[in-house]
């Protein structure tokens, strides 16, 4: 690896519940993801992939072990500090799009900028630019109900990239889309990774979607079962 790792898991454990009912979601994970990588995380449900993704996205913290993000000990930060970290460096794309209903595309995209304290006119300009990047010119004032699933996911991606994050965390981004739409979204993510150098960590259970990523990590029972890098296509 020739870049300093962006994400470092050092013997990360995550357990839920106590005593008999204790569930081990992650059992001592060691992992490093470098800047600019496009990583797909795969695995059956209960394998710990969602937990890993939540920790990567600074939404959750390990029970033990160290989670380092951009050189900070992100696993030890309180929730408000992690909120700042998310706001500044991480964008999220979810399976169910998670747009605010009855709120226009532009307003949805502006949302993270509000929490950054960006002025209204600047916010609007940045949102317009992000929407243009995902190919949604002319749809800025549509509400989610007026947009197709693919378009909604593009709005969600625009919202994730409007802050120019270092890391994009995508949780089954194509899970609700048909094949054609899925591939469009994946092409968009791939170009963000290749052209803008955005690091992407994506959870999926579809092999053809994972194939877009440069590296695929498979989880099983809280362990990493495999970690394979695609050979560089010249």
């Amino acid at each position: 690896m020739d870049t300093a790792p962006l994400i470092v898991f050092d013997k990360v454990w995550k357990t839920y519940g106590q005593g008999e009912a204790e569930v081990r979601a992650l059992a001592g994970i060691d992992l490093a993801i470098g800047q600019g990588e496009f990583v797909a995380i795969m695995g059956p449900s209960g394998s710990g992939k969602s937990t890993a993704m939540n920790i990567v996205g600074c939404l959750d913290t390990p029970t033990s072990g160290r989670y380092g993000f951009m050189g900070t000990d992100a696993g030890r930060l309180d929730r408000n500090r992690r909120a700042v970290l998310r706001n500044l460096y991480i964008g999220f794309v979810f399976q169910g799009y998670n747009l605010l209903p009855r709120t226009t595309a532009a307003e949805n995209v502006e949302l993270p900028l509000i929490y950054r304290g960006v002025a209204a006119h600047e916010r609007r300009a940045l949102a317009m630019k992000a929407l243009a990047e995902v190919g949604l010119e002319g749809r800025e004032h549509h509400t989610p109900a007026e947009l197709s699933g693919g378009q909604q996911q593009r709005v969600a991606i625009a919202r994730a990239i409007v802050t120019r994050p270092t890391l994009l965390v995508a949780d089954e981004p194509t899970g609700n889309l048909d094949t054609a739409r899925s591939h469009e979204i994946m092409q968009l993510l791939t170009s963000l990774n290749q052209d803008a150098g955005l690091t992407i960590v994506m959870v999926t259970h579809e092999a053809d979607i994972a194939a877009y990523a440069g590296r695929t990590i498979a989880f099983r029972d809280g362990h990493i079962a495999s970690d394979t890098k695609k050979r560089e296509a010249a």
Partner: peptide
């Protein structure tokens, strides 16, 4: 609740 979740995920503080 979901809206609050979205807001928190994209970087809202508790105080927001």
């Amino acid at each position: 609740t979901r809206e609050i979740g979205i807001r928190l995920a994209i970087g809202a503080h508790e105080k927001h």
